[in-house]
Design a protein around this nucleic acid. Structure first.
Lengths: 217, 217
DNA sequence: TAGATTGTTAATCGATTAACAATC
DNA sequence: TAGATTGTTAATCGATTAACAATC
C-alpha cells in the first residue's frame, strides 16, 4: 500500500438506491394484476414516508399520480426501467472463476437489468476453454487484449485478496472505469475509476449488528 | 401480495457502513507493519473528509489520536473489532443450496467477523446428507424444528423468488428475527423482523449507472 | 520553537418530513 | 358532494464540513 493513489468509493444519494426497490415492488404488483397503486401503499410496503415516494417518482418518471387513484403501474414501470438504464445493454467481464465467480457467471438476474457478463478469466488451466453459465473462460494472459479489443469498461474482481490489486491494475491500464470488487482488499485506483466494494460477510455482519441494537432497546 | 404486513427495510447511519471500511483498511495497513496512521491518511485512502474519520473513530473507539502522530493502529483495530461485534459469535443458517447457497456456505470470510453459518436446507434429495463448506445440508421438513431447537435468529434466503415468501414465513414463525434475502421478492414480514435485501444484479446496475452519470459530465 | 495533527464547536448542506391547497 | 390522494412549499432533522484553539 505504498502508492499514493486513492480508492474512489461509491457514494450515492438515497433516492438512487430506493428506485430499484420501487421497480421490484411494482413489477411484483404488476404480475399480480394490480393496475394502479397509491404512494401510501408503496410507502407501506417499503416502510418509508409516502411523500418520499412521490418525490422520488416525480424525479425519475413523467407519470403523474391521479388524486383518489394513485399511480398507474405500467407507465411507472417503463419510465423507471428507462431511468434506471435497465433497457440499455452493458457489457462486463469477470476475473476469478472460483465459487463466487461461477455463481455470478451463471446468475440469471443480470440480463433483466441490461447487463451481460461476457466472459470470465482465470489462471487455472483446468477451467480454460470451458463454459460457465454459457460464458467462455479465458486464460489471464488474454485479458489485457480482450478488454481493449472489446472496449470493456466494467470489471468484476472475484479473485483472492492477494491477487486483487494486480488484477485491478491490469483492468485500469486497459481502460476499465468501474470495478465491482468482491475481494477484501481496498483497491488503489486513479481518481477517475470507481470501485464498489461488495463484501458479503460485512454485509451480513451489519445485519446482525442491527438486530442486536434493536434487541437491546 | 395480499397481506397487509410490511417489509422492514434496513436503514443505517452512514457511520455504520464506514466503520467496516476503516477496519479493513487498518488491518491491511497493520499487516504491512504500519504502527500509527493519521486521520488524513485514512481519509485519503477512502476519499472522505478527515474530520469525518476522527468523528467516526471517536464515536466507536476509546483511542485518542496523538497530535503530530495520529492514531495507533493496533488499539484502533481491537476497539473497532469489539464495537463491530466481530468477536461475538453469531449463528445463522441458509435455505436454498444452489449456486449462491454453495458459495455462501463455503465462504471463508464470515468466520473472521464472528459469523457461523451452521447449516443449509434444501428440498433436493440429492443434496441431503451431503456437506458443503463443512456444513450439513438438511431437508426442508427439518427446518422448523432445527430453528427452534437451536434458537436461530438469523436466516439467509437463497431460494428462487417463487419460494422465498414461504421460506420466510417458516423462518418468522419459528423465531427468526433477521433475514438476509437474496431472492428478488419483497418479503412481507411483521414489523419486528428486519429484512436486508441483497440483490447482486441491482448492485452492479447501480455501479454501471454511476459510471454513466460520471461519463456524461 | 514551529508544524502537524488532534478534538470540538458552530455553520452548512442535503435529505426527509410536515403542512396544506388543489383535484378527481 | 365528501374523501382520498396528489404535488409543492416550508420546516425539520441529521449528517457533513469549516473553523480554530489545544497539544505533542
Amino acid at each position: 500500500m505504498a502508492r499514493k493513489q486513492k480508492t474512489s468509493l461509491v457514494v450515492m444519494t438515497s433516492s438512487r438506491s430506493r428506485l430499484p426497490l420501487y421497480y421490484s415492488l411494482l413489477r411484483q404488483l404488476s404480475q399480480e394484476g394490480v393496475k394502479t397503486v397509491s404512494s401510501a401503499t408503496i410507502a407501506d410496503y417499503l416502510n418509508i414516508n409516502p411523500v418520499l415516494v412521490r418525490k422520488d417518482l416525480a424525479g425519475a418518471t413523467h407519470v403523474c399520480g391521479m388524486p383518489k387513484l394513485g399511480f398507474e403501474v405500467a407507465p411507472l414501470l417503463s419510465d423507471l426501467k428507462e431511468y434506471l438504464g435497465y433497457d440499455n445493454y452493458d457489457e462486463a467481464f469477470l476475473v476469478g472463476v472460483g465459487n463466487l465467480g461461477h455463481t455470478l457467471l451463471s446468475h440469471k438476474g443480470f440480463k433483466d437489468l441490461g447487463i451481460n457478463i461476457v466472459a470470465g478469466f482465470d489462471k487455472n488451466p483446468d477451467l480454460i476453454g470451458k463454459k460457465v453459465g454459457g460464458k467462455a473462460i479465458h486464460p489471464m494472459e488474454r485479458m489485457d487484449d480482450y478488454i481493449k479489443r472489446r472496449g470493456l469498461r466494467i470489471g468484476i474482481i472475484t479473485v483472492p485478496s492477494e491477487c486483487a490489486q494486480e488484477v485491478c491494475d491490469h483492468m485500469v491500464a486497459n481502460g476499465v472505469r468501474a470495478i465491482w470488487n468482491f475481494s477484501f482488499t481496498m483497491l488503489n485506483v486513479p481518481e477517475n475509476v470507481i470501485v464498489k466494494n461488495e463484501n458479503l460477510p460485512v454485509s451480513l455482519a451489519l445485519l446482525t449488528q442491527q438486530l442486536k441494537s434493536i434487541s437491546e432497546q
